[in-house]
């Protein structure tokens, strides 16, 4: 029998995968993809809680509204982030995180 716990564990594993990618990868674009994965993992936990917290016998739509806002903000974030990556590539000719060390003392 599939329970809320199963969904939460899948969500946690997806988040952990994204976290590992953000820490270990050096290509900024792939770091960005892993960030998106972490956001989606949080969405999965929210939708899971929404389904199993019944209000009048229906899923809790407050949580799903929050997911809607998260997806919107993530889309805006990707657009701005990729524009920053393009600007960075123009000045450094590279998308390696280690090519951007200007703020290092």
């Amino acid at each position: 029998m599939i329970t809320l716990g199963h969904y939460l564990v899948v969500s946690g594993m997806l988040f952990a995968l994204g976290l590992a990618g953000v820490i270990a990868r050096r290509n900024i674009i792939i770091v960005y993809m892993c960030l998106e994965m972490m956001l989606s993992a949080a969405n999965l936990a929210l939708v899971g809680f929404s389904r199993f917290h019944l209000v009048h016998g229906l899923p809790d739509y407050t949580a799903q509204s929050l997911v809607f806002f998260t997806i919107t903000v993530a889309a805006a974030e990707v657009a701005v982030g990729l524009a920053i990556i393009v600007a960075l590539f123009r000045s450094k000719q590279s998308v390696d995180v280690e090519s951007v060390t200007k703020l290092q003392g």
């Binding site: 564990v9 594993m13 990618g21 820490i23 270990a24």
Partner: peptide, 21 residues
């Protein structure tokens, strides 16, 4: 970075597993 990333991810997964169960 790879070692620390994998370690953190495994720790986080175990923690979530413990909390959920």
């Amino acid at each position: 970075a790879i070692v620390s990333g994998v370690l953190l991810a495994v720790l986080l997964t175990l923690q979530i597993f413990a909390v959920v169960s």
